[in-house]
Amino acid sequence: MPPRDGRTGPDTPPEPREERPPAGFSRRSFLVGASGGALAGALGGGLAGKAAAATPPAAPPAQEGPETLSGTVEVELRVNGTALTARVLPQTTLLGALRHHVDPPLTGSKEVCDRGTCGACTVIVDGRPVYSCMQLAVQMTGREIRTVEGLGTPDALSPVQAAFCEHDALMCGFCTPGFVVASTACLEKHGDPDLDTIKEELSGNVCRCGTYPHVFEAVQSAAKARGGRTGR
């Protein structure tokens, strides 16, 4: 039996996405909490108000800031410029909230690994690409979230989306929304990225069908279509 770490390959990509919740939050601690019947998590100031809205009533707050959430919590999400609310269990991820709890559900972001490995759930939060399966919905208050649905529509494709179609940068299409969002973030950061930069920026996304070369072509051609501008 070879050592397990031998199989991760010579070039395990760095994880450019924001994977870990900021200090004080951990999806795992929520999950652990869930199995204990009480959901324990240290809550920052912006969330204290939300905790109060939990039903059934939240357990009494601990003395110094940390609070326990139980029951369901109302979250407010600003998605593609629109304020949305959803009532969720505290352990619900941003991905889960988008896909299952907002109305109508936003199912463009895909659930594939649900553990920060594949990038199919990538959204842009405050300008940065983020794995939405690694963020808790309750942390997203006040942050600006952009999903694939906000980038364009079939009749009005964004430059990146149009380039994906033109270069056949999709096959089954299940990884595609994640790649479209990550590519969009890449081009907002780098006006005219070279191939290595594109590979680096997209290294948090995987595709089983093998669209990578056509994705790279699409990103390069979208960069040209945007005239090499950075930013939105």
């Binding site: 896909r99 199912t107 989306q161």
Partner: peptide
């Protein structure tokens, strides 16, 4: 692909997306 525009915008519904 004729279904490219639906897939690149997240409009295409897969089984996982049925609500």
């Amino acid at each position: 692909r004729v279904d490219g525009p639906e897939k690149v915008t997240g409009v295409a519904k897969y089984t996982h997306d049925i609500r």
